[in-house]
């Protein structure tokens, strides 16, 4: 009778984490940040139909990097959970924290129990009436939840982008200022990004109900002008 080889659990986890990180590193990055008008999410995305940034609920947005079909499934699951909760209780009871915890549970479950981890990183953002109360939850492939302070950078090149963005970002800046900083950080020193290569959405702080709004290319061009 043949015996399976023994592999140390540390090694299994490390292999899975490496695998997930490699998958995520292949994709492009995105930045989510608090600005005066709300929360702006800016992703480098040459496709205008396969979205990385989407609406979940009235004041909650979702953004994902990595494998498109995997984070899109998570997005749809989040929309379902939020709509069901809003239907059963009230629209006010739907919150980003509880959604982030549910996502963490799914990601953690898949990471430890399945052959292949999900090759995604996601951002769950909720805009409040005051900028100080905005919430940004950054979730990693293994279910780790990071409660980001003013901004979050996701994706392959996150560390470098985060460093560039952190240097240019001012927390009380307006939409145009934050968006310019985000685009410059995503592009880096050698490149220039134009509106057609970007996907930008805003969770509008002043909105009354559904606060999520996509910014069209011409509006983005004008803002980063």
């Amino acid at each position: 009778m043949s015996m399976p080889f023994y592999v140390a659990p540390e090694q299994v986890m490390k292999d899975r984490a490496d695998y997930a990180r490699k998958g995520i590193a292949r994709g492009r990055s995105l930045v989510g940040a608090v600005c005066a008008e709300g929360i702006v999410i800016c992703a480098e995305n040459p496709s205008s139909t396969l979205r990385k940034v989407s609406e979940i609920y009235d004041r909650i947005a979702f953004a994902g990097v990595g494998k498109y079909n995997e984070f899109d499934q998570l997005r749809i699951a989040g929309v379902r959970a939020a709509d069901l909760k809003g239907y059963s209780f009230s629209r006010e009871d739907v919150d980003a924290r509880s959604l982030a915890n549910q996502y963490a549970q799914i990601l953690g479950q898949v990471f430890t129990h399945e052959m292949k981890p999900l090759e995604v990183e996601i951002l769950v953002a909720e805009v409040a009436h005051e900028a100080a109360d905005d919430q940004l939850f950054h979730l990693l492939y293994d279910g780790t939840v990071i409660d980001e302070d003013r901004f979050a950078v996701l994706g392959g090149d996150a560390e470098a982008v985060s460093e560039r963005f952190g240097a240019a970002y001012e927390a009380d800046a307006d939409l145009a200022g934050v968006l310019r900083a985000a685009v410059d950080a995503l592009a880096g020193a050698e490149r220039q990004l134009v509106a057609a290569e970007l996907e930008v959405a805003l969770l509008d702080r002043a909105g009354s109900r559904r606060c999520f709004r996509r910014l069209a290319d011409d509006e983005v061009s004008r803002l980063i002008g």
Binding site: A77, G78, R80, A81, V94, S98, L99, N101, Q102, I106
Partner: peptide, 8 residues
């Protein structure tokens, strides 16, 4: 909040 999951 509970996230519903489905088979395809």
């Amino acid at each position: 909040m509970h996230i519903p999951t489905f088979r395809t």
